[in-house]
Measured scan of single mutants.
Amino acid sequence: MASQGTKRSYEQMETDGERQNATEIRASVGKMIGGIGRFYIQMCTELKLSDYEGRLIQNSLTIERMVLSAFDERRNKYLEEHPSAGKDPKKTGGPIYRRVNGKWMRELILYDKEEIRRIWRQANNGDDATAGLTHMMIWHSNLNDATYQRTRALVRTGMDPRMCSLMQGSTLPRRSGAAGAAVKGVGTMVMELVRMIKRGINDRNFWRGENGRKTRIAYERMCNILKGKFQTAAQKAMMDQVRESRNPGNAEFEDLTFLARSALILRGSVAHKSCLPACVYGPAVASGYDFEREGYSLVGIDPFRLLQNSQVYSLIRPNENPAHKSQLVWMACHSAAFEDLRVLSFIKGTKVLPRGKLSTRGVQIASNENMETMESSTLELRSRYWAIRTRSGGNTNQQRASAGQISIQPTFSVQRNLPFDRTTIMAAFNGNTEGRTSDMRTEIIRMMESARPEDVSFQGRGVFELSDEKAASPIVPSFDMSNEGSYFFGDNAEEYDN
């Protein structure tokens, strides 16, 4: 783990906690998980779902989305002020799938948001429990990260689609708070800032007046979040320049895209947490497990152990491969979309394939898809080993990566060399080191050039047997250095459309 220093740990961010010791953190995270579980059980009762239907990941996603929508204050306010045809701002819903006479049927349900809020609060001892809501947002974000390569979004903001390893959390809503900021990748933060800068260039009043003052505060806050992700002084200094700019424009845009590229080699610290679907927490609570009393951590053995003992089902389209669908969801559960496939294969105990080789589309089923041909199958979400999630980018030494994705962002704290394609990355730096950030740029390029592919990161860190909950005997895996390590390699994943 990167030293926490003055930073709060993510469990504290996750639970809005002030400084807590490890036991208190485990208890408050457990409380959050228990609340999600209780809410899910109650919703299944309301909807009269069978046990099997309640364990269907598509039903879980609909129920999670309903509660997130019920608590989305800004959108609710907007919907009330701008009524649109056929949208009731006070209601929320989605597809629920039921097994009827041996076939899967889709039923569109509609609930009062007020009623959903009441059920959620009741499951969370009367609190709004925003930490639990954020947790579900991060699960949705991790699922998107594993399912889609955001080529269009990258290109629109002047970045290269091969930089997708920097895009963790790119679909997280803005209201996801400190826990959300911690899991956002460098590219995601750059993209958010670039969008602001572009608006400022096109709209003279963007930075002016009372609204402009708020915009400015948001801009500086985002700059500080991004600065905190960088691990070298030169990158941090460049972020200070971007933040202090009187009138952010093209120079800042250039600096930010430069920094994003540099992060492929001088990786930023991005938190990883295993956020599971509500249909995993519900049955665990129903079986009598007391998360608050037992304590829970999002970055240790607990999620692995929970998945070892969970039964989750998914709808499967006619030509999809259930094992591939399982891999997709497994990666999402562990926030591992940008991790090295060699490491993932070792931990999972079966070969993890790149996205383009998977015969599976996303987990969600569109409303126009034919239910007649839908089957369902068990998702295999178990693992051979477990490993500690990392909050750091690993040290800054790398190795060759593949054509589709030119770097990785480690999820697990496991000893290995970190793949990246130096030639491709360095070719993108057209040696432009003039301007006010020239000395920093020169320094950053120097550090990137001296990074050695064969150097090892996370020295001495290994994986653990599932029986080793105290992480007492690390097993340090050895990897084939020459092997392909990137998930979005030469990829044809669908595009994420909101």
Rank of each mutant, 00 (worst) to 15 (best):
I96A: 08
Y219W: 15
G185P: 01
Q4E: 05
S335L: 00
E434R: 01
L276I: 14
A178N: 11
A337L: 01
S165W: 03
L133K: 15
E254L: 08
T232R: 14
G34R: 10
R342I: 08
L315I: 15
S262G: 12
N397L: 13
R221N: 08
R416G: 09
T437P: 04
N319G: 13
A471D: 03
R461T: 10
Q364L: 07
A237R: 01
A323H: 14
M239A: 07
G17S: 07
Q20R: 09
G268H: 03
N395G: 13
F258D: 08
I217K: 10
M137R: 05
A234H: 04
C333Y: 04
S310N: 11
Q42D: 10
T350S: 12
S274G: 15
A286K: 07
E375G: 12
V280F: 12
N430T: 06
V476P: 02
R118S: 12
A27T: 13
S457T: 14
I36G: 06
K351N: 12
D88L: 04
Q405M: 07
Q327C: 14
I33A: 13
F488R: 01
V270M: 08
I41D: 10
R19H: 15
T437S: 13
F464A: 03
R204K: 08
S457D: 04
L154N: 07
N483L: 05
S69I: 04
D160W: 10
I116V: 10
E484Q: 09
A233V: 05
A387L: 00
D468H: 13
L328R: 00
E294T: 05
A451G: 11
L61Y: 01
V463N: 07
A131K: 00
S383T: 14
F479P: 02
R261F: 07
I33P: 06
R267I: 07
F291K: 01
R389A: 02
A263K: 04
P95N: 02
M440A: 01
A428P: 07
Q20D: 02
E53S: 03
L154T: 01
I475N: 14
V352D: 01
R422Q: 11
N321K: 05
I475T: 12
T373L: 14
R400L: 07
T151R: 08
D112R: 03
P474S: 15
N397M: 12
